[in-house]
């Protein structure tokens, strides 16, 4: 049994106990048996160290999201751009999902697409005046496509 399976069961147990808020023995037995009986998929295991780092990043991401929200509110962010970001090597699908979640959670950045060969397409807003965004966007897309093929 690997780490993602543990997380799966922990998530189920957390939802069960938060929904019922009842710590009697019968309820605990019901919750644990349901968590183990529900079907689960098999995935490749990731390193425990990576998981711990990602969990820590989630804790950091919440105040950072609020800070970015206030920044967007106070200063006008009118420029849009599409950037490519590299996926860190040797990521399992679970970790990639968490990375996409983290990037999308902060208000300034949204993941558009995940390319199989190890790139995220990230859309972000920046400070500055708005100028002819369509031309800018299409040229950026072309450039990113060129980078992809190389």
């Amino acid at each position: 049994m690997d780490t993602i399976a543990y997380f799966n069961i922990i998530l189920r147990l957390a939802i069960w106990f938060l929904l019922t808020a009842d710590f009697s023995l019968a309820n605990i037995i019901i919750g644990v048996s349901i968590a183990f009986l529900l079907p689960r998929s098999y995935t490749s295991p990731g390193k425990l160290k990576d998981w711990l780092r990602v969990l820590w990043e989630i804790v950091i991401a919440i105040p950072q999201a609020y800070i970015e929200a206030i920044q967007i509110m106070l200063l006008p962010h009118n420029q849009e751009e599409i950037v490519l970001e590299r996926v860190k090597p040797q990521r399992t699908p679970g970790l990639i999902f968490l990375d996409i979640f983290l990037i999308t959670f902060t208000p300034k950045t949204i993941v558009l697409k995940y390319h199989e060969r190890g790139w995220y397409e990230v859309h972000r807003v920046r400070r500055g005046k708005r100028h002819n965004k369509d031309i800018e966007r299409s040229s950026l897309m072309e450039k990113s496509n060129e980078e992809m093929t190389q």
């Binding site: 938060l18 808020a21 999308t104 558009l112």
Partner: peptide, 22 residues
């Protein structure tokens, strides 16, 4: 407990929906 569950599910679902829509 209920409100904490609400916060967690709100954060996860809204973010995932944002990614899917994008």
């Amino acid at each position: 407990s209920l409100l904490l569950l609400a916060i967690i599910s709100l954060a996860i679902w809204n973010t995932v929906l944002g990614y899917v829509l994008a």
